[in-house]
Simulated scan of single mutants.
Amino acid sequence: MTAHPMDEFPVRKFRFDFDAAEPETAVWSQSSELFSLFANAFTLHVPYFEKYLVRSMIAARGKITDEKLKRDVDAIIGQEAHHADAFIKFNDLLKRRYPKAQAMEEHAKYGFKDRLKKDDFKTLVGFTAGYETFTFLAGMLFLDNYDEWMADSDPKVKALWVWHQVEEVEHAAVAFDVYKHFFADDENFRRRMVLSAFWHIVSETFKAYLHMCKVEGWFSNPIRAARAMGFITRVVSQMIWNARPVMRSGYHPRNHPLATTEQNPIAVSWRRFHKEGGDVLEIDHAKMKAILEG
């Protein structure tokens, strides 16, 4: 039986360099250009949430009495700090392609800095847990649609996203467990934070997606515009569908079907391949075959 992905997950220190990449690399998936744009739009604000998460978990760690949870908090801090650094560097590539990307990134950066000043402790850990609900679900959604969305894509950008999505699933329960450690009796607040985080993710991503679609010519005629809007509607709808268990009493990320009975084979194989010393900094067709067959 495959080990549960949320058990004793490691911190992996990767460095991705996109300084020499041409601006055209921003449209990095030939399998689905629209997926490239959606993922890029998501990327503009997510690293600044990840910095918010790190601050949130640091604030919580000193108050936690459970030793296992402390170890998990240390691990999520390590993983998310590396994610933030990697995607901020990737955003530099996007800023060379999209005229409004700089302003959108700064809006996210200073927006989360303002939240850190204003949010009380309960909101800090609750909003973090709510946000992590959807980074986990997006992690599984992206990997489950690998063949359609990412199979034919830039090897380095693909490697960045596969790494990120695998680790989002690994630490999916930590922010939830931190919230429960302090506020186990307030399920309604947790649900409100899930909805608040979802609205923030969708609104920030939608604005950036529209801009990127416009730059890439997806609004040049009604048919292409309909395809572009249909794609983001499909992705958001799937995330909502996968989030159904999240609002139930007794929910725990560890027991979500996507993390148990429906584990993604790429995620399982990637973890094994990396643990055995395989190079996962670039993933082309041959490398993915080796990962899956290893």
Rank of each mutant, 00 (worst) to 15 (best):
W199D: 09
R191E: 02
P5C: 03
E33K: 15
G277F: 05
Q30I: 01
V157D: 04
T2K: 13
H200G: 05
C213M: 10
I266Q: 07
F49T: 07
D186N: 11
Y131F: 15
W218G: 03
F18S: 05
D144A: 08
P265M: 13
I283H: 06
N91L: 01
N91K: 02
H82S: 14
D19A: 15
S56Q: 06
H211I: 07
V54R: 05
Q238M: 13
F18P: 03
E8R: 14
T2N: 10
H285G: 02
R15M: 05
F183K: 12
K275F: 02
F219S: 05
V202Q: 05
V268C: 02
K63S: 07
F219H: 09
V246P: 03
P155C: 11
T260P: 00
P265Y: 09
Y48P: 00
I88G: 00
A60M: 12
K289Y: 04
A226N: 05
D152S: 08
A39H: 10
V54G: 06
E187L: 12
H164D: 04
L69F: 06
F182R: 14
D7P: 01
V215F: 08
P10G: 06
D7T: 15
W199S: 14
P23W: 07
E276H: 08
D154M: 06
T43E: 09
A39W: 15
P5I: 13
N255Q: 15
D17C: 07
K207Q: 12
E282G: 07
M140L: 07
A286Y: 03
E132M: 08
H45E: 09
A138V: 11
M150Y: 08
L210Q: 09
G250F: 05
P47C: 07
F38S: 11
D74N: 15
H82Q: 13
R224M: 11
R234L: 11
K113G: 00
H211E: 14
D92R: 15
A101M: 01
A267V: 09
F136T: 05
D154H: 14
D186P: 01
V246F: 06
N40G: 02
E276L: 12
G126F: 04
D177H: 03
G139R: 10
A75T: 13
V178Y: 01
K156L: 06
G294R: 14
E262K: 15
R234A: 07
V236F: 14
M104Y: 03
A286S: 10
S237L: 06
H107K: 13
H107P: 00
F219M: 10
K118V: 01
F14M: 13
N40H: 07
F9S: 09
A39N: 13
G250I: 11
E24N: 11
F206S: 12
T25N: 05
I77L: 09
D120G: 14
R227G: 00
F136Q: 12
A225K: 12
V73D: 10
G62R: 15
